[in-house]
Design a binder for these strands. Structure first.
Length: 467
RNA sequence: GCCGCCAUCGUCUAGUGGCCUAGGAUAUCUGGUUCUCAUCCAGAAGACCGCGAGUUCAAAUCUCGCUGGCGGCACCA
């Protein structure tokens, strides 16, 4: 049985786009293999905890359609799915480790640790704990009377730890480079390293698919698995999404919160489609495909280990492709949902044929169609060289619009063409004046159709004030 | 500094020893369609396959070294 998971920590405003990527792959791998996808909240860092973060992460995940089979708030066979509610479990396993001699109590103060680290760094040695409390009788004898202590992993010297990674192949570390990692902090909370192993084991996670930044802590986890005599999961470390300068994708250089993309009018399916193209490509080189198709052809082993740059320009193109593909009714509801009550369903439906191939994000609908519901303020002088010519043109237009009985785009176009001809103006010049008069903008949907939708009366009023 | 991962057009990638004088997509530029902007169509430019050795009749593809980029090195995850 395939069981995958993401384990976000609620220390940010929202789900990070990199986590969304990890979630997508985990979700896809589980679904592809008829398994389960689990969300576990790793809230063991009490200091960095952000209020509301967990709810936001869960709701964003839902917005993208990556619904977990088990998660906080959903009763599952391995609840609770929030680590802060599982403290007793970790403690018990940590103490087991101590009994087995794989871990030990440590009473060292922060000051001593800091000093030690500084000293080792000055000597250009690896900054790691010196096992002062291991076998130090003064420490061990008094354990029951001590209040503050941590439990550390006892890493043996100079052994090679090798594990297989589905994406990277075999990776080997030497234990000399691994610190005696803290397992239980002095506040009684476990560290990530202990909690992740215990929970993945208890929750029967079969595949640990996470970001590449975890590679160097994997040997620590391997050590715990081996000490516990637990079966290890399959590991796969996904490439890290990059900023254009190739550093790890960060909020200083890129929008990283997944919901930001939604707010900007990107469509969840398009974002997921784009994300699936990070480090992976469709066997037939397709760029656009449904999530169902992705599930069919996707395989973990085909993911490349190279860190790809997250390119918003290409995402935008893909999003535009999705928008163009929609049936009018579907797109109507997307736009309606996006803007709430701002635009009527009726107006949206009428304008979609005009803008469907022009907008690349839902948000851009506003730029094209705002003038339908709001009269423009026009600075004639700023837009045209000759305000006099503009004014006389408006007068001509006004007279001719009055005469139109059959208010249809085709008819409007016909009449306006004639006006342009009579005024001896170039079409481009004439229509630009009309365009600005009607919309206040130089870039708009097709004019005749827009005028039809706007209605004769409204058009007349907009022209009149300028003539 | 130490450890690890990675290395093909600006970007995402195809390529697993001969089909490669390296293919696609995007971005860019040019032209066509057009009342604007898009769409669409046609075309251009863009990668000495990071560098250097080696293996081989043959290497983008295998091996080694170098360089570079990235990640990790906390009582954070």
């Amino acid at each position: 049985m395939v069981r995958t998971r993401i384990a976000p920590s609620p220390t940010g405003d929202d789900l990070h786009i990199g986590n969304l990527y990890t979630a997508l792959i985990n979700w896809a791998y589980a679904k592809k293999n008829k398994g389960q996808f689990i969300v576990r909240i790793e809230d063991t860092d009490r200091e960095r905890l952000v209020k509301g973060s967990e709810e936001k992460i869960l709701s964003t995940l839902k917005d993208f359609g990556l619904t977990p089979d088990e998660s906080p708030g959903v009763i599952g066979p391995y609840s609770p799915y929030r680590q802060s509610e599982r403290l007793e479990i970790y403690k018990k396993y940590a103490e087991d480790l101590v009994k087995k001699g794989v871990a030990y109590y440590c009473y060292c103060s922060k000051e001593r640790l800091d000093k030690l680290r500084q000293k080792l760094q000055a000597e250009k040695k690896i900054p790691k704990y010196d096992k002062y409390c291991l076998g130090h009788e003064a420490c061990n004898m008094k354990h029951e009377t001590r209040e503050k202590y941590v439990i550390r992993l006892n890493v043996k010297e100079n052994i090679n730890i090798t594990f297989h990674d589905e994406i990277h192949g075999d990776i080997t570390f030497n234990s000399n480079d691994i610190d005696d990692q803290v397992l239980i902090k002095s506040d009684g909370f476990p560290t990530y390293h202990l909690a992740v192993v215990v929970d993945d084991y208890l929750m029967k996670i079969s595949h640990v698919i996470r970001a590449e930044e975890w590679i160097s802590s994997t040997p620590k986890h391997i050590l715990i698995y081996e000490a516990m005599e637990w079966k290890k999961p399959v590991f796969a470390h996904l490439p890290i999404l990059r900023n254009p300068d190739r550093s790890k994708l960060s909020k200083r250089k890129n929008p990283v919160w997944a919901s930001w993309y939604l707010k900007e009018g990107f469509i969840p399916e398009a974002v997921l489609n784009y994300l699936s193209l990070m480090g992976w490509s469709h066997p037939e080189q397709k760029e656009i495909f449904s999530i169902e198709e992705f599930l069919e052809v996707f395989d973990l082993k085909d993911i490349q280990a190279v860190g790809p740059v997250f390119d918003v320009a290409k995402l935008k193109w893909l999003n535009g492709e999705y928008i163009r593909k929609y049936k009018i009714q579907n797109l109507k509801f997307k736009i309606k949902d996006f803007f709430g009550d701002k635009y009527s369903e009726n107006l949206i439906e009428k304008t979609i044929p005009l803008i469907q191939e022009r907008i690349k994000t839902l948000k851009e609908y506003d730029e094209y169609c705002g003038f339908f519901i709001e009269r423009p303020n026009i600075d004639v002088g700023a837009n045209f060289n000759s305000p006099e010519q503009f004014k006389t043109t408006m007068q001509r237009i006004n007279e001719n619009i009055e005469k139109i009985q059959d208010w249809k785009a085709e008819k409007i176009g016909e009449v306006m063409q004639n006006v342009a001809k009579d005024a001896e103006m170039k079409n481009s010049e004439f229509f630009m004046m009309l365009r600005v008069a009607i919309s206040g903008k130089k870039i708009t949907p097709p004019l005749n159709e827009s005028m039809e939708i706007l209605g004769k009366q409204e058009c007349l009023e907009r022209i009149k004030v300028l003539s």
